[in-house]
């Protein structure tokens, strides 16, 4: 019978392997809840801004779906209404801006620091726990081999995965605790999403609801409205019912 290269103490798995996984799962759960708690409640927008956005959306939806309107009359009515309201700039948030006036400096926007701050907070909530666990694993379980990987690795990984093990000729498949940490780091994503199914969905929803507007994106709405008005004006009425008989015959022939 072949003698194994290395015999590992079975208690290593109870006192090193499983605790690392366990701690990482718990920290991941904690991190998710902290991110949810840190998430600011969505701020209410000014009604004029909402109105402006919704009119733009209305026009865009009309341009996309006009062909389902049943008759040409309906189409012309809506076309006229939208192009007129867009042209009159009635629903612009701040009225028509003075053409001589310089566009506002995006950096002086009072909302910008808040946005930056929340982004930084999120990043910190992601990276700090990882760094802490890595330190913990390195500090507590340093200097010994804990497991044999089921697949071979190249020698290049030796310095990283056998960190602190002073055996120059040992096969790279025998690795120390830090590599188990890395395997967990990538592999636990699936476990988190199974454990935190509802909560992570909630988190996603919250981040989606936040208006994604980067500071510095200085869109001139009155120009967008003018463009919308023009593109609605040039629409030609076609209906999804055109030539429907032929298509049905072709489908069932």
């Amino acid at each position: 019978m072949a003698v194994p290269d290395l015999v590992l103490d079975p208690s290593l798995r109870y006192w090193v392997l499983l605790p690392i996984s366990f701690a990482m799962v718990l920290v991941g759960v904690l991190r998710t809840y902290i991110t949810i708690l840190l998430e600011p409640s969505p701020k209410l927008q000014e009604w004029k801004a909402v109105r402006e956005q919704q009119h733009l959306q209305h026009s865009a939806i009309f341009r996309k779906n006009y062909f389902i309107l049943p008759s040409k009359q309906d189409f012309e009515l809506r076309k006229k209404h939208i192009s007129e309201t867009m042209k009159s700039m009635k629903y612009l948030k701040d009225g028509i801006p003075d053409p001589n006036e310089l566009p506002p400096n995006p950096l002086s926007d009072p909302n910008a620091p808040n946005l930056m701050f929340s982004m930084i907070k999120n990043n910190i909530a992601n990276y700090v726990p990882q760094a802490v666990i890595m330190w913990w694993v390195n500090y507590f379980f340093a200097g010994f081999v804990i497991m044999k990987l089921p697949f071979p690795l190249t020698l290049r990984f030796k310095s990283m995965l056998q960190n602190g093990v002073s055996t120059p000729d040992l096969d790279v498949r025998w690795v120390s605790s830090i590599s188990w940490y890395f395997v967990n780091l990538f592999g636990l994503k699936a476990v988190y999403s199974l454990i935190l199914k509802s909560d992570s969905a909630l988190l996603e929803q919250q981040t989606q609801q936040m208006p994604i507007q980067m500071p510095g994106a200085n869109i001139q709405v009155h120009k967008v409205m003018k463009g919308e008005s023009e593109s609605v004006m040039i629409l030609q009425y076609t209906s999804c019912m055109d030539e429907i008989e032929e298509r049905i015959l072709k489908l069932y022939a």
Partner: peptide, 14 residues
């Protein structure tokens, strides 16, 4: 593949 590898390593080691 990452979660597969994780479970594979864990059970293999156990």
């Amino acid at each position: 593949i990452s979660s597969f590898t994780m479970m594979w390593c864990l059970v293999f080691a156990l």
